[in-house]
Design a protein around this nucleic acid. Structure first.
Lengths: 194, 194
DNA sequence: AGTCATATGTGTACACTGTACGCATCTATG
DNA sequence: CATAGATGCGTACAGTGTACACATATGACT
């Protein structure tokens, strides 16, 4: 379908020029279409961006599917590393998937909200597996998964905004923080004393 | 100074139209200047956005300064709540301060990198205070502060991207996750939950 | 006072953006 | 072959950031 041609072209432009540099005309040119032809396949530029987001999430999904570790905890550790790698080696794809240029009007169907996306489902599955071996106490798997995801996303956002003085520092902090987060859920629930 | 007039106008436009709706011409109109006059005070539109970011961080800084709790842990809890409130009641300011529309080229001086901003300094101060009463064990205060900040930012980003099915759900998850994060660093006397 | 350098503001112009509209051309079905 | 729908295109327009050259205001020094 032409739609896929356009998406492929859009991916290329995205990778080269970033979200900001992505322009309807550039994508059209690369897809060998007139600019207006784009609008037969996407109502909007923002619809194109949304598609690119789905595309990025799908790639990320494939990466997650390919994590091979058997042990659920090892699997989660690889996941953490894979996310870091994805963010660093494909920054523009990452932006499109996780850092929309501005809050779009897109409404996710309830079934696709955080915690119901395919990737989240995989993560939750592993957490539940680990639970049956005694990890994570009675914390809801969704809470654990969301904490990991949000922490990772927050740190990467900061990095993408140049808020770490260098990449090495960022990586160290990322690994430390995520490891801590993972471990912090891996005990029976404890209550703080004041 | 005219610069401040422009910034005031920009704030208004930002609040009404959001980061995406903010346009050099609109700001100029509101400041009763010709569009080109803007360029005597800001080299770029992106310089204006940067200034708006500093502005947002400054207001956030004032909010943080005004947290009154004495006990450092209570202070941190209020901080968490204040951040949530800031994000929900001033979403566009929040965007400008924490979610730049796209990774800008802005380089932060080393002294202003994450962990050295004024707000971070305040947070770290409280964490250190808590440490001297035995909290947080030997975890570097920066690690604790960054984890809290990144987790909060990540969750809010997700919310701003409509990834939670409703605001109430988001708030619950935010509070749960941040409380957990805070507690997870608090190695002080811990007691089993019944 | 008058001069003059500097700071500040403006009007016009340009290249580039997203995209509305109407028309042309393919494609598939009768 | 005819015809209807899907797909593509050329033109046009309003809105964007901003370069450039010119106008004016300001204030310091004679």
């Amino acid at each position: 379908m032409t739609r896929d041609t356009i998406l492929a072209a859009a991916r290329t432009v995205l990778d080269r020029e970033g979200v900001l540099g992505l322009t309807v005309r550039k994508v059209a040119a690369r897809a060998k279409l007139s600019p207006m032809a784009m609008y037969r396949h996407f109502v909007d530029k923002s619809a194109l961006l949304d598609a690119l987001m789905d595309d990025g999430l799908a790639t990320w999904g494939k990466i997650v599917s390919s994590i091979s570790a058997q042990d659920p905890i090892a699997w989660l550790e690889e996941l953490i590393e894979a996310y870091l790698d994805f963010a660093l080696t494909k920054p523009h794809r990452f932006d499109a998937a996780f850092m929309l240029p501005a809050p779009s009007a897109r409404q996710f169907p309830d079934d696709f909200a955080v915690g119901r996306s395919p990737v989240m489902a995989m993560i939750i599955l592993r957490i539940d597996q680990a639970k049956s071996s005694g990890w994570f106490g009675d914390k809801p798997a969704l809470d654990v998964a969301l904490s990991l995801a949000a922490l990772a996303q927050g740190l990467v956002s900061m990095h993408r905004a140049n808020r770490f003085s260098n990449e090495a520092q960022f990586k160290t902090i990322y690994r430390t923080a995520l490891r801590h987060c993972l471990e912090s859920y891996s005990v029976r629930p404890l209550r703080r004393e004041r």
